[in-house]
Simulated assay, not measured.
Amino acid sequence: MNRNFTFLNSISDISEETFSEIKKITAFKRIEAGAQIVKLGDVPSKAYMIVSGIIRCYLITESGKEFNKSFYLPVSFAASLTALMKRKPSSFVFEALTDCKIYEIDYYKLMRLCETNDNLKSLYTKTLEFLYVKYEKRLVESMSLNATGRYLELQKQIPNVDELISQYHIASYLGITSVQLSRIRKKLDR
């Protein structure tokens, strides 16, 4: 059985016919490290399912400083959702940190399919619920944990985070400097 079909069915039951409809609006792509799949200010039309590799989502301040919002690892979905839903420019950049294999999904065709396909509508809803829970968890962590606590939570979510993602990007995600992250790591190693 197709592992993508199995993955989607782990979220919500879909039929093989529904899976065939999804495949028609999806394109497989290989993305090189450093490539941006959504650029700042783009009005996106695609959502992505990451099959391999790591993608980061970040914003850039007026002074040019970058802040990582999220890391996406296999198998997960990534999209500039607010920009897609409102058909507005993205406030975020989505960039491959490593070479990636992704499925690019035409969001607006997906929405049209959801209007007539209850299985697909359920899959979409459950995916949004999962993303919201993940977002809310991150928000609670950022408000209630110190930098060490946030780092330990990140290690739970991505056990080999230090081998996968550079110290600079981890520090940015945690809202601290690379020097502070080095101190936290040394303290935890003791």
Rank of each mutant, 00 (worst) to 15 (best):
I31S: 06
Y58S: 12
K86G: 04
G64Q: 12
G64W: 07
K29E: 11
L110Y: 12
K69S: 10
L40N: 10
P44W: 08
Y48M: 10
K101S: 14
G53I: 09
S10V: 02
E95P: 02
K101W: 01
V38W: 00
T26D: 00
I105W: 07
E95R: 13
Q36Y: 01
I37S: 05
K29I: 03
L84E: 07
E21C: 11
L110S: 07
E32G: 13
I37Y: 05
L97M: 14
S76M: 06
L40E: 05
F67C: 06
S63D: 13
Y48P: 11
E66F: 01
S76W: 11
C100F: 06
S90R: 07
A35I: 02
R56C: 08
F94P: 03
N68M: 05
A33T: 12
Y72W: 13
S20Y: 03
Y72V: 15
K24F: 03
S52M: 02
V43W: 02
N9K: 06
K39N: 14
R56W: 03
I50W: 01
E17N: 15
A27F: 03
I55R: 05
T98P: 09
E21A: 14
A33R: 13
L73K: 04
K29C: 13
T98Q: 09
E17M: 05
I102Y: 00
